[in-house]
């Protein structure tokens, strides 16, 4: 009897241990996290506008008022610039690392011009830019990323169906491009 109770007690302890391990390790192997899904959309350094209905990619515009485009990239080789402009009521941008943690977000209210103009850099590149700022980046919002792999979601608000064409144009002309820093 005693050994049975001991077996059950150790089992329960093990269950608690396994419970914790499962919760902590789940993000690593679901295969359905947003980073995996965004990478599966295609090559890096370009925006993919999401479809309006659920589909095999797992990503779609869940509400008719928000139109989203995503781009994944790696800043190790140089800064990545996000550029977009158009006549839309509201746009928002957020950046996530490869664990789907938000690293940056902004909306059009805090933009310098009226369009999106953001450059993602590594800390080393930021030091370089502080010494010499290329003219192209003078008006850009500089965001330092601690991890080089990231993805960005660019969202446009489309309050009524008549705003759809402008929203689509905004996302279709958005750029997610690499730039090289000339080594001094």
């Amino acid at each position: 009897m005693r050994s049975l109770l001991l077996a059950i007690a150790i089992g329960l302890l093990g269950a608690a241990f396994i419970h914790i391990i499962i919760i902590l390790a789940l993000p690593l192997w679901t295969g359905t996290d947003s980073w995996t899904r965004v990478k599966a959309l295609g090559a890096s350094n370009r925006f993919y506008a999401l479809a309006n209905e659920p589909n095999t990619t797992g990503l779609y515009n869940e509400n008719p008022n928000v139109r989203t485009a995503v781009c994944h990239f790696d800043v190790s080789d140089g800064p990545i610039r996000i550029i977009a402009s158009g006549d839309v009521p509201i746009w928002t941008v957020s950046a996530y690392d490869s664990s789907a943690n938000e690293t940056y977000s902004m909306n059009d209210r805090s933009a310098i011009g009226s369009g999106v103009n953001i450059a993602f850099v590594t800390p080393a590149q930021m030091l370089q830019l502080r010494r010499i700022m290329p003219p192209a980046l003078e008006q850009a919002v500089l965001v330092e990323l601690t991890r080089p792999e990231a993805y960005v979601a660019l969202r446009v608000i489309s309050p009524t169906p008549s705003h759809e064409p402008a929203a689509r144009a905004f996302l279709d002309t958005a750029l997610c491009q690499a730039m090289s820093l000339e080594s001094g």
């Binding site: 690593l28 679901t30 359905t32 965004v38 928002t92 977000s105 902004m106």
Partner: peptide
């Protein structure tokens, strides 16, 4: 985080909403 990974949706950032 486990929920987030399982769900796989791109959530709104803090300045977004």
């Amino acid at each position: 985080k486990a929920h987030r990974a399982d769900n796989g949706r791109i959530l709104l950032g803090r300045a977004e909403g």
